[in-house]
Every structure is written in C-alpha cells, then in structure tokens.
Write a protein that binds this DNA or RNA. Structure first.
Lengths: 348, 348
DNA sequence: CGAGGTTGGTGAAACGTATCACTTATACGT
DNA sequence: ACGTATAAGTGATACGTTTCACCAACCTCG
C-alpha cells in the first residue's frame, strides 16, 4: 500500500479533502456529516468520500467541539476501575447504547480525592455533553460550575434522588431486601447484615443494610415478629471476622442468618464461622451478592443475590440522551439495575 | 453564595476574564498558563486570577487543542474494565503519574471489536498525545493512521515487543515462571498449566504457560529431568474441570502440581480435584495468581503469585512522556510489572 | 420568453485559545 | 540630554470546523 501523496506532514484537513475532490470545504463538511436538508449529488458525495478515504482523513474533534460549542463526550469519573464485574458489564453496555445515540462514554479515574467545584472545573474543560458522577462528589457549586460551562446534563449516581441534579439511582437497597426476603422465607429470624468499613464499599453496605431492615420490618408486621437484625461493621480482615464468629459461637441469641454484603465478604464470614465451630447452613445461613462465578464452587456453595445487568442500559442511555436534549422536560430520577433475584444454593 | 454577574448564559471565556480584569486576552492566557519567558507583574497576575475565579472560568480544552495541534489526552482503549484488580491498581497509578507530567489518561471501552485502521481513525479524532492499546488491535495501517493524525506516541501493550511500534511489555510469562519455580522447588515434577479458553484471557494464559515451560526447561536441564508439563485448556465451567479431574484421578502419571492461571481458576480446579477424590496438596499441589484476598480463605488456603504493581508506574509514565517528546530517541521497549513473588500457602 | 422554483453547490464568518511581532513607559549609563 | 535596555503588556492572526447567506445554472409553465 502506497502512501497518498501528502502535501505536508500535518494531518490532513477537510480543506485537503476538498482540494483533492475538487469541491469546496463546505461541501466536504456537508457530505461527511450527512447533513440533513442539503442537496448534494450522489456523484459529488462519492468523490468526497473517496478523497477522504485516500487521505486517511479523520475529522478534528476539537475543532468541531469548538465550533459547535459542545462535544459528544459523556464523562464518567470513577473512583476505581475494578469496582466489580457488575459495574464493568453495565459500563460496557452503557458505552454501546450511548454510542448508538451519538455519544462517547469516557472513563476518568485517579482523581478520587478531587471533589466539588475544583473537580467540576477540570471535567468542564472538555465541555462534555454530560457528566455521570458519584453523588457524594457533587456539591451545589460543582453542579452550577458544570452547567455554567455548558454541560447539558449533570447526572448524580447514588442510592437515592439527589436534591442537586437528576439522579441515576442504583437500588442497592433492593439487594438487601432480596437477601432478607429469602432468609426469612427459609424460616430464619435473627438476621445479621455485614457492612464493610472500607471507604468506597461502606456506602453501598449501608444501603444494602437498609434494604434488609425494610424487608424485616415489613415481614415482621405480617409474620408476627420475632425478627431481629444485627448490624456488623467489618473490614476485610480474617481476624476481625474471627472475632465476630467467636462471639456468636458462645452467644445464645446469635444470628441464624448472615447477609454478607457480597460474595467476597461471604467467603470471609464462611471461613470465620466454620473455624468457630458453627455449621453453615445448619447453625447459620449465609447469603452473598453479585453472584461471582467462583462463589458457587465453595463448600457449601454460596447463595447469592444476582443483579441482572443485561438489557437495562438501553433505557438508561435513552434517559441520559433525553436529559442532554432537554433537561427541563426529562424525569429527574431514573432507576437502574432494579431487577435482582436470589440464587439459592447450599449455604442458605 | 451569589452568582457572579454573568454577562450572558454562555460559558465564560478568556475574553470575559480579560474584560473583568481590565487587561488583554493575551495577558490572561500568559498568566493562567504560567507562560515561561513572559514578564507580567505580580499585581496584574493577581487581578487576572481573581477575575478567573470570580467567573468560574474553565479554559476550553478543545480550543486549546485546536490551537496547539495536540491535546494532553492519553487514550487507553480497553476491552473490558473489570480486567482484574491488578489492572485497576496499575491504571490508577498510571493516571496519577501521567497527570504529574501534564497528561490525562482516559479509558475508552466498548469498541472491543473495533480494530485496525477504523478504530485508529476514531481514536485519532481527539488528536491524543498518545494511545496505549492492546497489541493485537493494532495493524501497520492503524499505526500509520495515528501517526498521520499527529499522535506522537502509539504504544502497544503486549507480551513481547511489537514490530510495529514501541511496546509496553507486560511480563505474564514471569508469573508462570514464578509458579513453576515454586512448585519445582517443592519437589513436584509433573506440572499442569491451565489456559483459559475465554477470548481475552486465553492470550494471557498462553504467556503464563510459556513461562512455565521456560522454567521447566531450565530446571530440567539442571536437576536432571523427570520434569513434564501438561497443558490444560479449560473454560470456566465446573463440568469441564470435573472431567479433567476425573481423568487425572485414574491416571498413573497424573500431574502432581497445577498452576491454575489465576485464583479464580484455582478455586475451580480445587473443587474439581476434591470432588474427584484427590487431596490438595497431598496428591496435587495448586497455585493461583493475582493474590486475591479471598483466595487465602479457602480450604486449603491457596498459594498465589503476587504481582507487585506499586511504584512501577512512575518509570512507565516517564517512558511514555519521553516517547511523546521524542519518539526517535526513546527506547522502543519498556517492561512493566516485572516484580512478581510467590505467596506460599497451604495448597502447595 | 421571462418569472419563479429547484438543484447543486460556494464564500465567509465565527468558535476560544496560544503566540508572534510589536509598542509604550520607565530606568540606566555616560 | 541622549541612546539604549528592560519591564509590562497589547493587537492580530491562525488552528479546522460548522453553518448561514448567497449564487449560478437549469427546468417548468403560462
């Protein structure tokens, strides 16, 4: 393959394409963008496309963003890329669905500490169409900064609707509810819920615990009580888990069921409970969450709450696209990943 | 907090800042960029900065990129965000280190199928300073396309130096070597190495297997042989693993040690081996990799190869920055994550 | 045969920034 | 007092697009 006769060493521009095709630069723009309501003959279109191809022309996104005043970027600053496989699946699908609607989802990470208006200013520099960000990293000033910089949609991600801006609600409480319902149906009455102490996970843990409490309260009213919920704050540490298990081993009113936040904490609790001489599920039932593939391989196989991520991203992408188009006339709340189901196995 | 008296609803520009500060737009640019070799009084600098602050001015990154011809973006198209925690740690550190050098690392995902020149054209649109991408998604035409669009550094990520462009070598073979060395030192002679059949993981698996083979060959020469390595292609499926274990259970020359690719495959093999009546580590030793926290909690606790990610990113960031500055005079190969160590536990 | 519509384009003006080439005012050396 | 050096800053241009306002043919029809 020969190099096209490049007039210079600078990247080819639409002017170069126009020159090669023998048309004006405006025509190139119209053709390559398939501009609606513009009449260009098929013959000319073919010439332009051929010229663009020959030159390996790639439009200058920055020039376009400058001219139009906004980019097709949807920024998503994340605290940590490895937030779990569920997040990865959701992200991949969101990327695809937003792409179909003309947007490009981009992950920023690293500036986990950057919050508020300083972070907002950094995000605003690329004039994104939308910013998707964890609710607790937003302030009123940050939202205003982003809007002032032309960001059409500032979307908070959190467990409940934000007062500041439209919110994408991830229903972590529903995970706790599903776990609790399952355990109660199996006849368990004294539930424990693990809340991780790690910075990022704690907030999710709180919500999952809240779901357990909600479900227990409802079932308690219906089934005539006897229901109790114990909260267990736990770092991912074998010693800490062992201490909890040791306490339970000698306690007459120990929990007969544990919702362990997720499958990783479930294996932590499993080990501790077994080491303390407690049988799972005989003495204590155990439920994790996220349905990680390897959790089904343990002894006993661990029951888990599965979150159904597939297919839901299309609606969310539509919501975000709508928000970008017209923030006023779009619903301020969208719920994602609401479909959860228990996968019962040997541990409960 | 009151809104600054915004003259319009458009985002503030450097001209607005200049007007408010009573200076020219050029001065604003010089001050806010700390331009070297330009003499501006401290008094004026203060005025400009105050005005920018009052207006909530955020520079228009696209306008800057258009003017300067290049952006500070380092694009990293990844097939899947949840590539494992190690990748996450490495990414976070790279983001930080590149940030210190004036670059912004950005993750693109989703277009996993996009390869070659079409993908390159899409990446080139933002005129990134560098593109970091899995080696197998590059072609000669793609590299040329990116360079033609002004990308200073096209970096391949792969197990060995690419012929096309500078390469960031991730030494997966070293992981296999470390596992094999450990097992051989423990007196094992008939090794098996698991290679996942999943699309993304297979390539890594091949490299880890290659490391096992290398180490076995070297040790075989020294220790007087008897060493054998069996390759096990395995999907993450309990039935498939059980079939392998069942075959081994009745085989006189079954492996006495398995390197399971990673900790997840290790638990898959562990379950299958135990179900087949084989003792771990009595009959078969087992080693995983990635040192996931929960793998240490199984029965038996699983030995693992740990990759030391911390601290190595600074050198890599320097290398990439050097590549961007002067591609010709920079080394064409950089090795990352070369420090691995075995974490021996009960399973080996 | 000329008014008016349609087809197929073109010219030129921004968008917000960086930066080169100047300009003005003051200080300095003799 | 004169020329020169320096400090402090300004004016204007160009980067590559999109898009608005035109324009030249050609066709149609009374």
């Amino acid at each position: 393959m020969k190099l096209p006769p490049s007039a210079s060493d600078r990247p080819p521009t639409s002017v170069d394409v126009a020159r090669l095709a023998g048309v004006s630069q405006a025509t190139v723009s119209y053709v390559l963008n398939d501009a609606p309501g513009v009449r260009i003959s098929e013959e000319t279109r073919a010439k332009v496309r051929a010229a663009a191809d020959r030159l390996g022309y790639a439009p200058h996104a920055s020039a376009r963003a400058l001219k139009t005043g906004r980019s097709d970027l949807v920024l998503c600053p994340v605290p940590d890329v490895a937030l779990g496989s569920l997040f990865g699946i959701w992200m991949r699908e969101m990327t695809e669905r937003l792409g179909e609607r003309g947007f490009r989802l981009v992950l920023l990470q690293g500036d986990a500490q950057a919050k508020g208006v300083a972070a907002a200013r950094a995000w605003a520099e690329w004039r994104p169409a939308a910013v998707l960000v964890q609710e607790d990293r937003l302030t009123r000033a940050a939202v205003r900064q982003l809007h002032a910089a032309g960001t059409a949609a500032v979307v908070a991600i959190g467990p409940e609707p934000s007062a500041l801006t439209p919110t994408l609600v991830f229903d972590d409480a529903g995970i706790g509810r599903a776990a609790a319902r399952h355990l109660i149906e199996r006849g368990r009455r004294r539930l424990a819920a693990v809340v991780p102490t790690e910075p990022v996970l704690r907030d999710f843990g709180e919500r999952r615990l809240a779901g357990v409490l909600t479900e227990a309260a409802e079932a308690g009213g219906a089934a005539g009580s006897g229901l109790a919920v114990e909260r267990v704050d736990l770092p991912f540490d074998e010693g800490a888990a062992a201490a909890v298990a040791a306490r339970w081993a000698v306690s007459p009113d120990r929990p007969d069921a544990v919702f362990a936040y997720n499958d990783e904490y479930a294996v932590l609790m499993l080990r501790a409970l077994q080491d303390a001489g407690l049988d799972v599920p005989g003495d204590v039932a155990l439920v994790g969450a996220d349905d990680l593939p390897w959790a089904a391989l343990l002894r006993p196989r661990i029951s888990s709450v599965r979150i159904l991520g597939e297919g839901a991203a299309g609606d969310t992408a539509d919501w975000i696209a709508g928000l970008i188009r017209d923030r006023e006339r779009s619903p301020a709340v969208h719920r994602a990943l609401t479909r959860v189901e228990i996968v019962p196995r040997e541990s409960s």
